[in-house]
Write a protein that binds this DNA or RNA. Structure first.
Lengths: 202, 202
DNA sequence: CACAACATGTAATAGGTTACATGATTTC
DNA sequence: GAAATCATGTAACCTATTACATGTTGTG
């Protein structure tokens, strides 16, 4: 700051949310509202954001020169703004992508399993049986999405939407794991005795 | 508040961190420092907390009557406090455990995969090859921990430390998934052509 | 004697959720 | 005409990270 002009250099190091929005915008220009929808799936299986977080972040990205926007009037009291990544934004995204990620995942279902023996075994087994059922439903959904994507050629790394497919593959694998693990855990809690992991359920 | 006494009813609904600490304390009394160490593994594979978050939370749990503490003098300028779960704390924990969890997992490695095609394919493939290597190391560690635990009878749901084993099993499965997925992704990016998921690596 | 480990706290900041606020257009 | 969808923002609150602050005990 302090009187020095021309400080619009690439020193701005954005937030993870900012990079997530840039990633979405590489699929094409979008409004804040559309980004709020698009973040739901498949990205939303591993990363979520609400509109109240997205709108202020778009303003910050715009101030940093990483996106620009055109206004289109209505509907509602305010102008509709369509955002697009700038060359500077794409450069920043590319630089961020190749930094090895460090953040640990956070899983509430696993945290509850850590204290599983403190609760009623029957209730706790039911919890994990329900979880296994939910993962079955999700898995079916994801597999359908995956075959639709393959039919559209999105499993090709040359396709700009290949990332959607990569994220979905992780979703499929994760739900398979949740399914197996939840059934194993439920089986342990129901029988009250050690169950070897990976055995077919009884 | 407001003049009404006897408001120490079970209306206090704690934070997730609070329940995580209660879960740790079901293994036995501990100081804030010890909890900071114990949260690292295996719980830390899916849930983390720093001491700066733990100390204030212990104060809140204490105020709610969910834990109590004894002071032991030193070392350092302040007294050392050893915390233990109270009956009320255990009741609260049990009630929380059977609530179906809703929180979505958050994974930075998957987020980066979403934008994989925006970066240099060689650099990006290297990132995921490194990730696969790291998961191999972690998997070996976890498997060792698992056989130690089995030898100690912690794979028995009757054992109060069974939760440690359940969390570790999720860790093992998760690292296996990360390994397969990262190698698949690296293979896609290196060859630039669609690679069927689950094929042995070339 | 330096350095790691033990031990407990607070302050400032960043990240994220819930709730508040407004209003047009489209569909049943 | 009611309800869903489109569309954008702010405020209050909760959660989590980084940095600041202090001081002892044990090990090489």
């Amino acid at each position: 700051m302090a009187g020095i002009e021309g400080d619009d250099s690439a020193t701005t190091s954005g937030s993870t949310l900012g990079y997530a929005l840039l990633s979405l915008l590489t699929r094409g220009p979008a409004t804040g509202y559309q980004l709020t929808q698009q973040v739901k799936a498949p990205l939303g299986h591993f990363w979520t954001a609400r509109h109240s977080q997205i709108y202020p972040e778009l303003a910050r990205l715009s101030a940093a020169g990483w996106v620009d926007s055109v206004e289109q009037a209505g509907p509602g009291p305010r102008a509709k703004k369509t955002y697009a990544v700038t060359a500077a934004g794409l450069t920043a995204l590319r630089a961020w992508l190749v930094i090895p990620p460090t953040a640990q995942p956070r899983s509430e279902i696993t945290l509850k399993a850590y204290a599983a023996t403190s609760a009623d075994p029957v209730a706790m087994a039911a919890l994990y049986t329900d979880l296994a059922e939910r993962s079955t439903r999700l898995l079916a959904e994801y597999e359908q999405d995956a075959s639709r994507m393959r039919a559209a050629g999105q499993d090709d790394p040359g396709n700009p939407r290949f990332g959607n497919y990569a994220v979905l593959m992780m979703g499929v694998e994760s739900q398979r794991v949740v399914h197996r693990w939840a059934l194993w855990l439920a089986s342990c809690l129901r029988t009250g005795r050690p169950v070897p992991y990976g055995e077919p359920p009884g």
